[in-house]
């Protein structure tokens, strides 16, 4: 009797402690919890609901079924233009930004370089420039008549360009601009490169392999986690780009830079078609989700995580 009594006493005490900890956990998490439920996932569901209606700011919303989606996919001229422009930009900016960032990181990782911290700081500065200021600056540099770029091209005797002011050069110009601000992936690559095992590199040296062999067979596999992360984040950021099309091109010329996030903004906040714009947002979300899954499927497996520190 006595023994069981003690055991009974022991158990509730443990669970009281656990219960206190659970309560504390929820109390400390309460702000985040409210945010996640009401400002993130709740809104996510709300967005899906709106996308099946003809919601505008004033007036009541009517349920219209799949009408918005059908109209978007079948009739909306701007939708396909926009998807094409966005995919082009996202792909271009990921390739340009990641290659630039990786190249700089590899240069800075060289043992013979002094003043690494200095160069790293300088190469990061463009990423610090606020988006609106950076857009205005590049717009001015892209100016076909009085801009820096055409002045430099003329000086070198090269043909000039209309940059963001012509249909076929607008997206490449914005891609160029995105590569200017490659600080974040560069820093991440640098830390990835610092972890590449020197013994493995020496092993290639002993086997008589050159710099290229080292890079392809040792460096790339060993930095694959950061390569994967940077690429994924770059694609998402590329798809979500907004400020450049709003400030610099207003989607033009001839819809060449009508990126989806700008189209969503225009349909919702300028044309007051919230239901329609929500359907658009959902289609983009689904496309992006499929892209992410494909990337995970094909490249996720190839990512090398050293030991247990994943």
């Amino acid at each position: 009797m006595k023994g069981t009594g003690n055991a009974d006493l022991g158990r509730p005490r443990m669970s009281v402690m656990k219960r206190n900890e659970a309560i504390a956990g929820y109390v400390f998490m309460l702000p985040l919890l409210l945010g996640i439920v009401f400002l993130t996932y709740g809104q996510f569901v709300y967005s899906l609901i709106i996308s099946f209606t003809d919601k505008s700011v004033f007036g009541t919303a009517n349920f219209v079924g799949l009408q918005n989606y059908v109209k978007l996919l079948r009739e909306d001229f701007f939708f396909w233009k926009s998807i094409k422009a966005t995919v082009l930009y996202a792909f271009g900016s990921v390739v340009a930004t990641q290659l630039t960032a990786l190249a700089i990181a590899i240069l800075l990782n060289n043992r013979n370089i002094k003043g690494k911290a200095f160069f790293r700081t300088i190469f990061y500065v463009p990423s610090i420039v606020p988006a609106v200021a950076s857009c205005l600056l590049w717009m001015w540099m892209f100016n076909p008549d009085f801009g820096l770029f055409n002045a430099a091209l003329k000086l070198l005797g090269l043909p000039t360009s209309k940059w963001i002011y012509a249909e076929n050069t607008a997206v490449p110009s914005l891609v160029l601009m995105s590569a200017w601000a490659c600080g974040a992936p560069m820093v991440i690559y640098l830390s990835g490169l610092a972890n590449v095992s020197p013994t493995l590199l020496e092993a290639v040296d002993i086997d008589g392999g050159g710099a290229w062999t080292k890079f392809i067979h040792i460096t790339i596999p060993m930095i694959s986690p950061v390569l994967f992360y940077n690429t994924l984040m770059g694609i998402i950021a590329g798809f979500m780009t907004f400020t450049n099309s709003y400030v610099m091109t207003e989607g033009g010329p001839n819809n060449a830079t009508l990126f989806v996030n700008y189209l969503i903004y225009r349909d919702a906040f300028q044309y007051n078609e919230f239901g329609y714009a929500s359907a658009l947002a959902w289609i983009v979300f689904i496309v992006l989700a499929i892209c992410t899954l494909v990337i995970f499927k094909f490249f996720g497996k190839k990512v090398y995580y050293g030991g247990a520190d994943q």
Binding site: T40, F44, S47, I236, V260, A268, A281
Partner: peptide, 14 residues
Amino acid sequence: ILPGHVVLIPLYLT
């Protein structure tokens, strides 16, 4: 990873 553009409109309406 959730792209912010999806919640933009409902948040504004809320």
